[in-house]
């Protein structure tokens, strides 16, 4: 039994699937970093990705151009971000409520559009001739036994996702807009007092987050699979949001925690072919997410409590 798993080829392909499954999660988690740094939770990652995925398929099928398809995905996701900002910051609706209702609208609205275009409500597979983003083999690394199988041959967007981790780090740390986003998140009143428009910065953070979700959506429908299916995200937006929350919106840690969730999904997929009950295995990634989020919360609370105890001790000594 074990022998079928513990060989070099299997480990290579398992790691490959971990990276592949993690790609959309990394994109969305990076997007969530911006809004989290601006002091807001982006709960609409799910709908931004879903709309991005649909727009990617539609745009690439209509134009037969990969670039336009990708652009369409990003534009769709950014449009959703714009709608949310308009409602939350200008019409003054509750941001949570806005995100949740936009999520609901997206899950129904995409099915509606899918039906208008394809004449059926489940998938666009075999009906729309949408394009896929090509795969990339890395010349030298490809030859290394386990590493080659795991790292080479991914979708171009997968490599872009890992590159974006550095990009986000740079954007948040070194650029003017990044610093402004952080200042708004840490103390909106202080930022306001030096003439930064909080509402504008938060809108920008949402729009950037939309760009990343568009990439994630494009990967889902033009790389992970080559079609759009209803509710194809299945909670990935919320998983990514938890990844960002756990890691306190640091891009590198967000990537790592996104990959941790990718790992649990990959394990579930690998167990699928064993005799383990399929339904329980499918529930695994979601249960893992809940457990991980709670575990990290416990650690955070413990750390805070120790810090407080230390402070109390220091005060007493004085």
């Amino acid at each position: 039994m074990l022998e079928t798993y513990w060989n070099v080829e299997w480990i290579g392909s398992f790691l490959f699937s971990v990276i592949r499954i993690s790609t959309p999660l990394i994109f969305a988690a990076l997007g969530a970093c911006f809004t989290k740094k601006a002091g807001l939770l982006n709960m609409a990652l799910e709908s931004m990705m879903l709309v991005g995925a649909l727009c990617g398929v539609l745009a690439s099928a209509a134009s037969q151009s990969l670039f336009l398809g990708f652009l369409g995905a990003v534009a769709g996701a950014v449009a959703i971000a714009g709608i949310i900002c308009y409602c939350a910051f200008f019409l003054k609706t509750d941001l949570y409520l806005t995100s949740i209702s936009i999520n609901l609208a997206a899950s129904g609205g995409t099915v509606f559009i899918l039906y208008l275009v394809c004449g059926q409500k489940s998938t666009s597979a075999g009906i729309l001739k949408s394009l896929t983003i090509p795969k990339l083999t890395i010349p030298l690394i490809e030859k290394i036994p386990v590493l080659g199988a795991a790292v080479s041959g991914h979708n171009v967007l997968t490599y872009v996702a890992f590159f974006c981790v550095f990009l986000v780090y740079f954007l948040l740390k070194k650029t003017r807009i990044g610093l402004r986003i952080k200042s708004v998140g840490e103390n909106p009143h202080a930022a306001e007092s030096v003439g930064i428009s909080v509402r504008r910065i938060q809108t920008i953070s949402f729009l950037i987050s939309g760009v990343f979700c568009g990439c994630a959506g494009a990967f889902m429908s033009m790389g992970y699979v080559s079609w759009f299916a209803r509710d194809m995200l299945a909670g990935r937006g919320f998983i990514s949001m938890s990844a960002t929350n756990i890691s306190n919106a640091s891009p590198f840690l967000s990537m790592l925690s996104a990959m941790m969730f990718g790992l649990s999904q990959a394990i579930a997929n690998a167990l699928q072919i064993t005799s383990a009950p399929a339904e329980l295995v499918s529930a695994l990634p979601y249960i893992m997410t809940i457990l991980l989020v709670m575990l990290f919360a416990l650690i955070r609370i413990g750390r805070r409590r120790r810090k407080m105890a230390k402070l109390a001790g220091a005060i007493q000594e004085e």
Binding site: I239, L280, M294, A297, L298, R300
Partner: peptide
Amino acid sequence: AREKLEVNEVVVSIMMNYALLYLSNYVLRN
């Protein structure tokens, strides 16, 4: 999770919805 651990309740509840769906499928099938 929300009141004691300060974990966002939307995330936990949405994840639980999926877990409950599969759990209920499991009970039904088995």
